[in-house]
Amino acid sequence: MLDATTYPTRREENWRYSDVDALKSLDLAAINSWREITVPAGETHREIFTFDQADGTDLRRLRVTLGKGAECELFAVSAGSQYARLEVEVTLASKAHFEFGGVTLGGDSTIREFVTRTIHAEPDATSNQTVRAVHWGKGTGNFLGRIDVVRDAQRTDAAQDFKGLLLERGASANAVPQLEIFADDVKCAHGATVGQLDEQARFYMAARGLSPDMARKLLVRAFLADAFAALDDEAEQERLLEQALTVLGDAV
């Protein structure tokens, strides 16, 4: 656990890819401050986060507790600040569900990251996390996702999916999925891939009359859309996608 009297260092697993120098622009109280969210049994909480300030450091830490049968949906576009971090710790009671969809984007030497810890504390809960990262220049996108399943949390169904898209040499994406499972009747899955645009798909689209720029934009849009597929508000989906594509600008 982070010592509340000192700044984080990269020796700590949850901060291994972070911009720890940028954190020193914040005071320790801000770094160690968590926003508490409690969702009572049977209720639903949805929240959308955007990181769009021009520079500086943007750190947000949430601790979410879900009651029996409660649902929490969090969606985020991290495309601002020199260093931006959203950290979420969620504890699920029986039959609760946690949904997270996030996108990181950035060029230059920016670092944007999502860090999650999902604690399945009781049986029959579900969680799903979908993260997409698109970076260029020397930009970096990180996803550190830990899933804990306690001994009595039978019939847990938990999944994480991370994909990184690097538009230029020098950009990077890091994924650290972790599973700590102590129950024996569970379904837990995680996947992580990092690559470049599918040239075969671009060729296919060009052969049907689309310009290279348009083909590239459509492929990136489809790539990002996965993160918001669980959001059942189409207008909000479109708004988040347009925000992301605006940030991409000439990078695609």
Rank of each mutant, 00 (worst) to 15 (best):
T126M: 11
T130V: 15
A125M: 10
L105E: 05
G101H: 04
F98I: 02
D124L: 09
G102A: 07
T118C: 08
G102H: 01
T126A: 13
I119E: 13
V103Q: 00
V103F: 03
F100D: 00
E113C: 07
D108Y: 07
V115S: 10
I111Y: 08
I111M: 09
I119V: 15
G106Q: 11
Q129L: 13
F114L: 08
F114V: 09
E122I: 02
F100M: 07
V103T: 01
S109E: 15
T104Q: 03
A121F: 04
P123D: 06
P123W: 08
H120N: 11
H120Y: 13
T118M: 11
G101W: 00
D108F: 07
T118I: 15
T104P: 00
H97R: 15
F98R: 00
H120S: 14
F98K: 00
V103N: 01
D124M: 05
H120D: 14
T104C: 04
G106S: 14
D108P: 06
T110G: 14
A121Q: 14
G106V: 12
E113W: 06
V131Q: 11
G107Y: 05
N128M: 10
G106F: 09
T116M: 01
S127Y: 09
R112A: 15
A125V: 10
D108L: 10
G102K: 01
F100R: 03
R117W: 00
A125S: 15
Q129F: 00
H120A: 14
T110R: 15
G102S: 05
H120C: 12
R117Y: 00
T118G: 03
E99W: 07
G106T: 12
